[in-house]
Simulated assay, not measured.
Amino acid sequence: MSTPIPAGSLEGKTALVTGSSRGVGADTARFLAAAGANVVINYRSKAPRAEKLAAQLHEEFGTSTLVVGADLTDGDSVDSMMGAVKDVFGGIDLLFLNASGGMEQNMGEDYAMRLNRDAQVSTLEKAIPLMPAGSRVVFVTSHQAHFIRTTPTMPEYEPVALSKRAGEDALRERIPSLADQDIEFVVVSADMIEGTITATLLNRLNPGAIDQRREEAGSLLNVAEFAAEIVKAAVEEVPPHNERICGDVSSFAPIE
């Protein structure tokens, strides 16, 4: 796995990646560790998987890691996570809002909005006191969500897409106040990602959906490729409109 940013370039920095025990979040954590950052690995329910990743990162890169279980929809749980981060590392230089969901069963009708909008804002607000000047926030989303106002998506994904766009909008409203504290904000968006749990669930509900989307787009990023874009968004110059749009978007109508 090639590294998207140079080894040692994040030495002394601390990065918190929500939902990082597997998939895109785990590869994001791996790239950050390879660049020398301290990495906080957040998980909701799979502690052994998160602990295994932390051990791998420490063994491979010598990085300092902290594994913290926290359900982002539970404010007390997030408070505990931030307290642990403060105790161990003192602060957060890079906050990656990667955790998302909404296709799970038996989580309540409003779960997608609670997780993809409300919890994103709450997590940011609880992290800000730990973020020094020069920090950056990266919000991870999909083209299906980012462009949902102008381009319909498959019905099975629509509630998630709408809630993630609502989360993006709510976070964007905070850009001016973040700027006042010298904290930068970037949205990273890509099409469906090969190999993610979301893609697997969508293909189960709508057989052939991923193949069809791949054919329409020409190609789709895999987990590692998207994680590389996310990490680069944390260190490269903030792009126009605070958004890093990955891959082809010819299938999506632009947002006015």
Score class of each variant (00 low, 15 high):
residue 220 L to D: 04
residue 256 E to Q: 10
residue 11 E to W: 05
residue 138 V to Q: 04
residue 66 L to C: 01
residue 103 M to H: 12
residue 60 E to A: 11
residue 220 L to I: 06
residue 134 G to W: 02
residue 216 E to F: 10
residue 78 V to R: 07
residue 195 G to W: 08
residue 247 G to F: 13
residue 185 F to W: 03
residue 154 M to S: 13
residue 33 A to M: 03
residue 143 H to I: 13
residue 177 S to L: 08
residue 46 K to Q: 07
residue 41 I to Q: 07
residue 46 K to P: 00
residue 165 R to H: 03
residue 126 K to V: 09
residue 9 S to V: 13
residue 73 T to Q: 04
residue 106 N to K: 15
residue 64 S to G: 11
residue 171 L to F: 04
residue 187 V to I: 10
residue 21 S to W: 03
residue 207 P to W: 00
residue 50 A to F: 02
residue 217 A to F: 14
residue 101 G to M: 06
residue 36 G to D: 11
residue 223 V to N: 08
residue 242 N to D: 10
residue 49 R to I: 13
residue 239 P to N: 08
residue 145 A to D: 03
residue 72 L to K: 01
residue 90 G to L: 13
residue 81 M to E: 06
residue 252 F to Q: 15
residue 186 V to N: 06
residue 236 E to G: 04
residue 205 L to N: 10
residue 197 I to P: 09
residue 181 Q to T: 06
residue 125 E to Y: 01
residue 134 G to N: 06
residue 27 D to E: 10
residue 50 A to S: 05
residue 75 G to P: 06
residue 72 L to A: 03
residue 221 L to N: 12
residue 199 A to C: 08
residue 195 G to V: 04
residue 116 N to I: 05
residue 221 L to W: 01
residue 6 P to L: 05
residue 21 S to G: 14
residue 241 H to N: 14
residue 164 K to A: 11
residue 103 M to K: 07
residue 242 N to V: 05
residue 68 V to W: 06
residue 40 V to Y: 04
residue 200 T to W: 01
residue 124 L to K: 03
residue 40 V to P: 09
residue 81 M to V: 00
residue 178 L to R: 05
residue 3 T to Q: 13
residue 170 A to C: 00
residue 110 D to T: 13
residue 73 T to M: 10
residue 69 G to V: 01
residue 5 I to L: 08
residue 119 A to I: 00
residue 26 A to G: 08
residue 20 S to E: 00
residue 166 A to N: 11
residue 60 E to S: 08
residue 190 A to T: 14
residue 131 M to T: 15
residue 10 L to C: 02
residue 204 R to D: 09
residue 159 P to K: 12
residue 242 N to M: 00
residue 198 T to G: 01
residue 11 E to I: 02
residue 34 A to F: 01
residue 143 H to K: 13
residue 81 M to W: 07
residue 143 H to D: 05
residue 137 V to I: 10
residue 39 V to G: 01
residue 197 I to S: 15
residue 83 G to H: 12
residue 230 I to F: 02
residue 238 V to N: 01
residue 77 S to R: 04
residue 251 S to T: 15
residue 213 R to E: 10
residue 206 N to C: 14
residue 225 E to A: 10
residue 225 E to R: 05
residue 55 A to C: 08
residue 90 G to H: 06
residue 193 I to D: 02
residue 208 G to Q: 02
residue 41 I to A: 04
residue 255 I to D: 09
residue 225 E to G: 10
residue 28 T to I: 07
residue 252 F to K: 12
residue 15 A to C: 12
residue 68 V to C: 14
residue 141 T to P: 09
residue 241 H to C: 13
residue 33 A to G: 07
residue 116 N to V: 06
residue 154 M to P: 04
residue 208 G to C: 11
residue 177 S to G: 06
residue 141 T to F: 03
residue 77 S to K: 02
residue 38 N to G: 12
residue 88 V to A: 15
residue 31 F to S: 08
residue 155 P to A: 08
residue 66 L to R: 04
residue 148 I to M: 14
residue 26 A to K: 07
residue 138 V to M: 04
residue 164 K to V: 09
residue 70 A to M: 03
residue 123 T to D: 00
residue 218 G to W: 11
